[in-house]
């Protein structure tokens, strides 16, 4: 587990450095069990930083979504580092961003948080509805939920996010400073969930996805929450050429989800930010995981594990499979 005092001390030390612009971490949320992103600009801000199983957001997104506004004449652009706290999965986003040369390694200062799993907020809210303020802590194999003076223990498995049940990299793969002791891998990924969907008949598959896609509101939360979706001019919303229309119907929604998932083929690092952001509960990870599985099986490639390897689709092997070609 991460020691909060140590975390705050390190954050204070880091933000006091001349070459660091901000530290991105977590702070308590405004209601229920939530935690929310914190942007530490001066040492005093660091006192509200926390880390708990409620810290579900992937902060690597903030490194890449910052607008690059024109700098007034006579001023230099702020080239100081961004320090960011990352869990195991989030660290893979940074590796993948580095692999794609989204920024230089010098641009970020990575504060690694060895993570024993975070909760699925939907599961928590279903189990403890209408709690206006509460806390979640992980103790051994139990989540301790405290609110309104009561304390309840729940088995870890019941509230753990699905992505954590398959997590193979709980300890960050890249870090400049580690905020806790290494966590040993406690889960493995057998893709049984993808296989269940793969085994459905074609009609069942379309019926399944048609229902999910048709309720999509096209709010673009899945795209914007994704640490890998940082194109300034996104294919999903560009007007010329207009790949998919802004109108919302099953055709455009399907096109949207195919294109979104395809653009993450060989890039998705399984952090689950898209699915967590979706207000309509569309199982977006099921789409991403199909690519993840295929990429691993067909090309023996795992995104976000090695910043030196070339991006999957900008390379090839002469021996790639071609039994589907006429």
């Amino acid at each position: 587990m991460v020691d909060i005092t140590k975390l705050r001390d390190i954050a204070k030390e880091v933000i006091s450095r001349d070459d660091v612009r901000q530290v991105i971490g977590y702070r308590p949320g405004t209601y229920g069990f939530r935690a929310r992103p914190a942007f530490v600009l001066e040492p005093a801000d660091a006192d509200e930083l926390i880390f708990s199983p409620a810290c579900i957001n992937n902060l690597a997104t903030y490194i890449v979504i910052e607008e690059k506004l024109p700098v007034p004449r006579g001023q230099e652009p702020d080239s100081r580092k961004v320090a960011v706290m990352v869990k195991g999965c989030d660290s893979r986003a940074i590796i993948q961003q580095l692999e794609e040369k989204a920024y230089d390694r010098d641009h970020v200062l990575v504060l690694g948080i060895p993570c024993e799993g975070v909760v699925d907020m939907d599961k928590v809210n279903a189990r403890f509805p209408n709690v206006d303020k509460g806390d979640i802590a992980l103790e051994g194999d139990k989540f301790v939920i405290s609110f309104n003076g009561t304390k309840e223990e729940v088995a870890k498995d019941e509230l753990l996010a699905d992505k954590c049940k398959r997590c193979r990299y709980p300890t960050p793969l890249v870090s400049d400073e580690m905020l806790g002791d290494e966590v040993e891998r406690f889960a493995d990924d057998d893709f049984s969930d993808v296989e269940v969907l793969e085994k459905k008949s074609r009609d069942e598959k379309w019926a399944y996805w048609e229902e999910k896609f048709s309720r999509c509101a096209r709010c673009y939360a899945c795209r914007n929450a994704c640490p890998m979706c940082y194109c300034e001019d996104c294919v999903l919303t560009r007007l010329e050429p207009m790949w998919m229309r802004r109108s919302v119907d099953i055709s455009e929604n399907t096109a949207y989800h195919i294109a979104r998932a395809y653009h993450l083929a060989g890039r998705c690092i399984q952090c689950g930010a898209c699915e967590q952001a979706c207000p309509m509960d569309i199982p977006l990870m099921d789409l991403n995981r199909k690519f993840y599985k295929d990429v691993r099986e067909l090309f023996d490639y795992e995104p976000g594990t090695d910043a030196e390897q070339p991006p999957l689709l900008s390379t090839f092997s002469v021996d790639d499979r071609e039994d589907f070609i006429l």
Partner: peptide
């Protein structure tokens, strides 16, 4: 290869 597998996955023959 990836696109074809994926289309099959969402129910496109």
């Amino acid at each position: 290869n990836l696109m074809r597998n994926f289309l099959e996955y969402v129910g496109i023959e």
